[in-house]
Amino acid sequence: MNNNMYVKSNVLIVEADVEIDHHRAERTRKSVDFIMDNMGIDKIIFDFRETQFMDSSGIGLIMGRYEKAKLTGGRVVIANMNSSVDRVIKMSGLDNKICVRNSLSEAIDEMNAYKSKNV
């Protein structure tokens, strides 16, 4: 149930929880912010491949990281949402602000393209 995260080529990849509610989102937020603050990382990919449930706390989690990353010229990309996660993301309008990709590899490509534009 705990999410895994790892850093690859200066990008933090978060394997999001099976269920993202307020309880889970808080734990993820703390870990992600710790890595952002202590490793100076501001490029984050949320991979939702395992996620079956997400409520508004998940929207807040992504939004909050997006705002934080933006402060230092960073970026958030989200990938691999199933239909129910996709539905709440669309309803919240998050997809108008944040880059959405179908797979993790497309998200990584997107992040690399962004890095080479913004050295």
Partner: peptide, 15 residues
């Protein structure tokens, strides 16, 4: 206003 809440809770309940 922590930036962690989107104000979508009631919207989802309604929808």
């Amino acid at each position: 206003d922590s930036g962690e809440r989107s104000g979508m809770g009631f919207v989802f309940m309604e929808a």
